[in-house]
Structures are given as structure tokens and as C-alpha cells.
Design a binder for these strands. Structure first.
Lengths: 207, 207
DNA sequence: GTCGCCATACCGACCGGTCGGTGTCCAAGG
DNA sequence: CCTTGGACACCGACCGGTCGGTATGGCGAC
């Protein structure tokens, strides 16, 4: 009954039939963002992905694993992007502005992941939660390094601790999902640039 | 077995034996903040409060109601505080700075409520969620009014939409719970003043 | 008596995870 | 060429346990 089955397992199958693990992750992301982790049953996920529980527990050890994989994917991508921007040869202010704007744009592009991050992280098992926090911490530290660099060079004000500034900014970023809607009049890039402006201007030395 | 029961219901009972609804709300707040709404069973709440499910369902219609009451209490208090600060006769910048700093301090004083707000709002029934959002919206609009007032008078930059600025700032505030710890070296008021400074300085007209 | 307040016992729904089995493909043996 | 066997991918019925909510009854105050 399975059509087009002359396909190597694990192989990408054009753009019609995605691999099962990917479909699972994709649907789980949507459902977790819409109803929350605890309110989404494994049954719902597998139905949305068009498979059965057997398939899911074949690829993932638990429902927790599913959530963890979603996090890990997002974190890897954001860290990669930050590293690439932060280590370019551009002037500091430009690098910080680009990093600040980019993280907004990518957060909006993947609003679902962002929402899940916000709402469901504390529902992970303690050890996996620790792993996520560690990765996240590395990201924040890299970003903080940029702020400190500007403070050391005198470009930025020094009367605000860099870590407070970083938490201040990422609070704003993480909360995008609670108010941003595609139907709004501002594009993701516009929001990103506004946010980056606000951050950079808040960092100007006081008059 | 209930001692000291010669007490009018609804009456405050010294400082030893709080009223049952209050105890329920108090313990529910702690547990929701620690484990999340869905992970906290009604059984755990009533045990922590020293009563049984019969008592809880006598005072509250559902587990949802408990959560809703917690929200409503916080929102009433924050709105009251903002109104009082915003309508004083002080200069605009002082009023906005006070409002911005106060909301940080009160968010830190009640970190549990703040955490719950962040994590569990979407688990309310749709109509109650709507009620909470409406109240919250009123709060944001009042705050935005201050920003717009400063833009109209030329004190603040006009190239950033006021609602973006407000969402930017409250994102930061809502996320305090995810990083602030009492053990840190900064007091609630210090954080509040830093945040208010960052907001006010970000609003300075660009050079 | 009856009314507010609460305890106890219990129900039905549902959920994450398991487990024995099935269909398919490929490689080796004859 | 056909057979065998076993690795892989997946199915779906089922289980133990938990949870929100309810029905009933008791008890003290008026």
C-alpha cells in the first residue's frame, strides 16, 4: 500500500514525502507552540505527522526527547549565526547592531520555536534542562563580550553592568512571540532594526 | 479536630490561621511557580494548604479559577500602582522613570506571580485568557500614553513607534524571573533603576 | 431544621510508554 | 534463480497510573 517505496530509508525524498523524524519534529513544534507541551499528547503529534506511536518511539526515546531536539536545533542555529556576525572584521557598533537585529529576525522567522522556548523549557527533565541552559549561557556570554568590548574602548557607557544589559535585551527578544503578529505593519527586519537601535542608543554614554 | 474554630468565616484570624481561600491561593501560587500549572495537581495544592478537595471546590469552581484569581490579584495591584504614579504632578521623565522602576521592583518582590504569568497564561480557558489580556492591554496603554506624551512634547525621539518601545520594555520586565536571583549582588531597586535608565536613555532623541 | 463549610470515597477520561508482531529489503548460501 | 535469515522501520492494542471533578454525608452554628 505504500506507494513510491523505491526509496532508500534516510534519503530525502524530493519535496513531497519528508522523512518521518523530520515530520514528527515539525508537527510537534507546531502543536507545542499552540497548546503547550503538557497539553499536547503523543497521540496528537503522531496523528498530525501521519504515523503511529510505534514510529515515534522508534526514533525518539521519549516525549521529552522530542522537545529537547527542538531546542537543540534552534540553539545550534542561533549560536552559529552569532559567531559568524561577531567575528567579522566590521567595527564593533556594526557587529553588535547586526547581532542584535539578526536574533530578532530569526526569532520572528521561527516564532513557534521561540514560543516553546519561553513556555516549555521548565518542563524538560532536569539534566536536559541543564544542557540547554549551558548552551544558552554560552550564547549570552558571547553577546556580552561585544558589550564589554565597547565599554572597554569607551564607546559604550560603563555605568550599566554588561550582564544586566544583556538580560535586558534578551528579555525583549524572547517576548516577541507574545505580541508580534504577521499581520502587523512592521516587517521582521524593521522590528529588528528598531530593537538594535534602542539597544545601541541605550548604550551611548550619558550626557 | 479543627482547633480555634470559633472564628467568623471570611474574618482575618490574627496572624496564625489564615482563611482557607487565602491559604489555597498562596500555596497554589508557590506550586504553580515551582512546577508549572499542569504539573501541579489539585491534590498537591490542597495538601499544602492543609485542607481537602471538598474545601477547594467549595470556594473555587475549578483549577482554572485558582489560576485566574492569582492573575487578577496581580493585575489589579500593578494597575493601581501605575495609575498612582502616572497621574502625579511630577515632570514627565520622572513619572515614566518611576513607573518603569516600580514595575521592576514589584515584579521582583512577587517573582512567583511573575513566573506564573509568563509560563501559564496560555493554559487558561480561552475566555478567561481574554479577560486577562484585556486587563493587561489597558495597563500597557496607560504606560504607552506616557511615552507618547514625551514624543509629542519633543522630549523623546519620534522615530520609534511607542507601542514597539512599550513591548520592548515589558519583554525585559517579564523576563526578570528567568535570571534574577536574590543571591545576586544587585537589589530590586537597583535593577529597577538600571532598567529605567536604559529605557529613558534609549528614548533620547538621536544625536 | 437548615444552611454554610468541609471530608471522604469514588468515577471516567486520558496519557506516556511498552511490547509482540508485521512487512520490506538486501545479502549470503545453495 | 530461489530460498533463507535477519536488520530495519513501523504498527496498534494495551497497561498502570494519574488527574480533575463530583456525589454524598456529617457537623457545628443559628
Amino acid at each position: 500500500m505504500t506507494r513510491a517505496s523505491t526509496r532508500k530509508p534516510g534519503e530525502a525524498a524530493g519535496d513531497e514525502q519528508a522523512a518521518v523524524p523530520r515530520r514528527l519534529l515539525e508537527q510537534a513544534t507546531k502543536l507545542f507552540a499552540k497548546k503547550g507541551f503538557d497539553r499536547t499528547s503523543v497521540q496528537e503529534i503522531v496523528e498530525a505527522a501521519g504515523v503511529t506511536k510505534g514510529a515515534m518511539y522508534h526514533y525518539f526515546g521519549s516525549k521529552d526527547d522530542l522537545l529537547y531536539e527542538i531546542y537543540a536545533r534552534v540553539l545550534r542555529e542561533q549560536t552559529r549565526q552569532l559567531e559568524s556576525v561577531a567575528s567579522s572584521g566590521a567595527p564593533l557598533r556594526e557587529r553588535l547592531a547586526a547581532a542584535a537585529s539578526d536574533v530578532v529576525v530569526s526569532s520572528i522567522d521561527n516564532l513557534d520555536d521561540n514560543t516553546i522556548f519561553l513556555q516549555s523549557m521548565h518542563q524538560l527533565s532536569p539534566d536536559k534542562q541543564k544542557a540547554v541552559r549551558a548552551e544558552r549561557r554560552k550564547y549570552h556570554e558571547r553577546f556580552r563580550g561585544l558589550v564589554e568590548e565597547g565599554q572597554a574602548s569607551g564607546e559604550f557607557r560603563m555605568d550599566k553592568p554588561a550582564d544586566v544589559v544583556v538580560d535586558f535585551y534578551f528579555g525583549s527578544v524572547h517576548h516577541l512571540g507574545s505580541w508580534y503578529h504577521r499581520s502587523g505593519s512592521l516587517s521582521a527586519r524593521q522590528i529588528g532594526d528598531h530593537y538594535a537601535d534602542l539597544l545601541l542608543d541605550a548604550l551611548r554614554p550619558p550626557a
